[in-house]
Amino acid sequence: MLTYLDFEKPLAELEGKIEELRHLGDSAEIDIASEVEKLQAKLDKTLKTTYANLTPWQKVLVARHPDRPRCMDYINRLIEDFTPLAGDRQFGEDAAIIGGMGRFHGRSVMVIGQERGRDTASRVKHNFGMPRPEGYRKAQRLMKMADRFNLPILTLVDTPGAFPGIDAEARGQAEAIASSVDVCLSIRVPLITIVIGEGGSGGAIALATADSVLMMEHAVYSVISPEGCASILWGTAEQSKEAAEVMKITAQDLKKMGIIDGIVNEPLGGAHRDHAAAIEAAGNELWDQLVPLLRLPGEDRRLRRRHKFMDMGRQEVGRVGSKSAA
């Protein structure tokens, strides 16, 4: 059973009606098939207009949708022979970050992603996708290993943020994230990121300092959650919608700003309505990004990645009327 978001009420009604008609079966008075067809057309049109005009805040809700495909859904569909690898070899295993080797289009790769879980039990197990330092240290271990064996790395980002807890702080959450970014910028193998849901701040960039960063059409990526931003700058979380607007957190805005490299279109009505189509589209785009990267020498890839981030935001200096000294 699909979960409907508040702004999806008209969609819920239409889908409900179609469902009812299908259960009625044909009778002499009404032509069920054509009636269903008519409603279906109306539904498709409503879906299209609704999803083509999502506000940033609505995108936040879609990105966090409970039925949206998760990291493991992507891995199961895109990666063959997936072999999970566990633990940071220092303290423990963090289920908020999944890591392992597998085959992507026949090519051996390392996959690292944040998993939020689906039902209550698995959400608790995966800590709602909020990694602890050992998760980031596992990611670093796997990235370094991938670099040694020349395995391209795919990272799937979906986190509200790194876990803010006593234990996480005690074990050096800040250092773990800093070192992950450091490792991302040190490796020579291709590193491609796709933000599949929510890209929450430092918890996301730790895995997303990549050659190529993709976002799903309705994913969001930001320095702080709109709720957090609103409560700090407006003094109340009630301004979250406004914060979501001004922060520029959608894939479309971030592409325009030159922060991300590509957007993967989601099926009509969002990834949660058709997991297979969404994941296939992501897989195709990931492969298209990977192929040209594979042709570059390793050191070129590292320097190209470095310059991409160094240049970020610099190109606009001229436009605002001040001369760049850099």
Partner: peptide, 22 residues
């Protein structure tokens, strides 16, 4: 921490300052 008013570009200073260290 981050300068929220610069949005995602403030987050991008994490890799950028890490490059400085490197």
């Amino acid at each position: 921490g981050a300068r929220m008013q610069e949005g995602i570009l403030s987050l991008m200073q994490m890799p950028r300052t890490t490059i400085a260290v490197q």
